[in-house]
Design a binder for these strands. Structure first.
Lengths: 210, 210
DNA sequence: TAGATTGTTAATCGATTAACAATC
DNA sequence: TAGATTGTTAATCGATTAACAATC
């Protein structure tokens, strides 16, 4: 997993998509597939698929193609889905609830171990068997349970303070749903900014001339 | 808006981010900014900012920089935020609720005019003053109200059928939250696939070696 | 063996960065 | 006018596509 140095993010961002298509093929009992067939299903070139996969080693067989199940497993391993990362959700409002309920699953490499909010009316409720706790108790919780990932589902004005606290507590990765842009200025901290608004504005642009 | 031909998606996807940073600057009463200052705040090069903006015309002034408010307005116009698009939300489950409640706002160019679900227990409820209607009545509703955008918040197995129906009813743009990849095989149909799972898997990869 | 399809190198294309003349 | 910063062209860099030899 760590022997593959300098893979570009363009390649990495296609891996989950490969993983998804391969999972569909498994559901449909497809055993093997060629880069050409897959390229037609996915709407990209066969060349790109082979190029991408060969960043990580030869998963295919000349004259035959790729074994779907093996390839899916291999990509899952590259993505680290089998390595469960302890995750806390910060913010139990609407978006926090969706994230806690629908997004963080163990088959994707994340195990939710805590949910936090500063709103007293939410503290004590449970989502998927996990009690919503007071944000003030984050220090105690992290020191005891050592989560490494946080999903931020809080208003932008609360983000800068909570990031500093969480980094001090050993959080290494942020899944950021707030409207605040986390710039990766800390070494060894990973960030995924989601920004659904940006996606919607992009759709607005695309639909301008239709 | 339509005189700018052939702008690459790389540029377009940066526009909402410019818009967001400029909006922050307005909130902070900053009147003017140079590409250099903005580049430092955003973590990109000044050259790229100037290159991007000049796809659409000269918004700046040599020796002075850009007037924040004017530039923000101009980008909003390029994105089409001032042109309200009638939007329906398909699916009123957890994700549909978040989209209906928090995502579709008029200051972003979209006006929600309908919410639909096939689950009888949800029909009749209201979200932001709009009644959840039976998906079966989509034909009647669209023929009367002519929405042009749909946000798809339904399970993947329901997507192919609903897309065909909605395209037949004149929907031109899809904001797709389902785990189904809408490939743009129809001309004059715009699609934004969101795929939060892909984002999470990318975070998984990034956090592998920390 | 012949046919198919990969792995991989080379060619092309596009996006980003650098440089500088234009100009406020 | 002098200083600053844009608009824009040229150079660089990276990503995608094409081609083909290797090989199952």
């Amino acid at each position: 997993m760590s022997k593959h140095e300098h893979i570009s993010m363009s390649v990495i961002r296609r891996l989950p998509r490969y993983y998804r298509f391969l999972s569909f093929l498994i559901e449909s009992d497809v055993m093997r597939i060629s880069s050409k067939e897959l390229s037609e299903k996915m709407g990209i070139t066969a060349s790109q698929i082979r190029q991408d996969l060969n960043c990580f080693g030869g998963f295919g067989q000349q004259g035959y193609g790729y074994i779907v199940e093996d390839l899916q497993k291999a990509i899952g391993e590259i993505l680290g889905l089998n390595n469960l990362k302890k995750t806390v959700v910060i913010g139990a409002g609407n978006i926090g609830r969706v994230v806690a309920t629908h997004m963080i699953f163990e088959n994707q490499g994340f195990k939710m171990i805590g949910i936090f909010d500063k709103n007293e009316r939410l503290i004590g409720e449970s989502i998927r068997g996990i009690r919503i706790d007071d944000s003030a108790s984050l220090e105690k919780f992290c020191n005891e349970n050592h989560p490494s990932v946080a999903a931020l589902c809080i208003p932008k004005e609360d983000v800068p303070e909570i990031i500093d606290r969480l980094i001090a507590l050993g959080i290494k990765a942020f899944w950021n749903f707030s409207h605040y842009d986390i710039l990766v200025k800390y070494p060894d901290v990973a960030v995924e900014n989601v920004h659904l608004n940006d996606s919607l504005m992009t759709l607005s642009y695309k639909s301008n001339d239709l």
